[in-house]
């Protein structure tokens, strides 16, 4: 159960940063009622950030990841989340095996 100070510091920093985001939203709440372009820009943040996080894996790792990503995107249009995950995992394992 030993943990060095650096690890603890990193975990606490992440925890405080994350809770600050959640708490800011809770406190600002309805006052952040936006309309028009501003609302469109803010609504775009969740899908844009989620996309940005995985984009390098999809487009700058190797062809097995890129093709598996394309298959997974197709699956995401039709299947529930669990099916999407299974499709992604199975296709990447098969394609990586083909890539050798």
């Amino acid at each position: 159960m030993t943990m060095d100070a650096t690890t603890l510091l990193a975990i606490l920093g992440m925890a405080i940063g994350t809770y600050a985001c959640r708490l800011t939203g809770l406190m600002v709440g309805a006052r952040l009622a936006l309309t028009g372009r501003a609302k469109a820009a803010l609504d775009a943040i969740p899908p844009a950030v989620l996309t940005a996080v995985i984009a390098p894996t999809l487009f700058a790792t190797g062809w097995p990841e890129t093709i598996a990503g394309a298959i997974t995107i197709l699956a995401a249009m039709r299947l529930p989340l669990l099916g999407v995950i299974l499709t992604g995992v199975v296709s990447v394992v098969v394609l990586r095996a083909l890539a050798g």
Binding site: T6, T7, L9, A10, G13, M14, G17, T18, A20, C21, R22, L23, T24, G25, L26, M27, V28, G29, A30, L32, L42, D43, I45, P46, V49, L50, V53
Partner: peptide, 30 residues
């Protein structure tokens, strides 16, 4: 060594969406 500053920055960037998600949900838990 652990790049603490970079990790915290990345965490806040990825979780910045929670500000908006929380703000949108806040009136519904008032």
């Amino acid at each position: 060594p652990v790049p603490i500053a970079g990790i915290i920055l990345s965490t806040v960037l990825i979780n910045a969406r929670y500000v908006l998600m929380a703000a949108s949900l806040a009136p519904k838990v008032g």
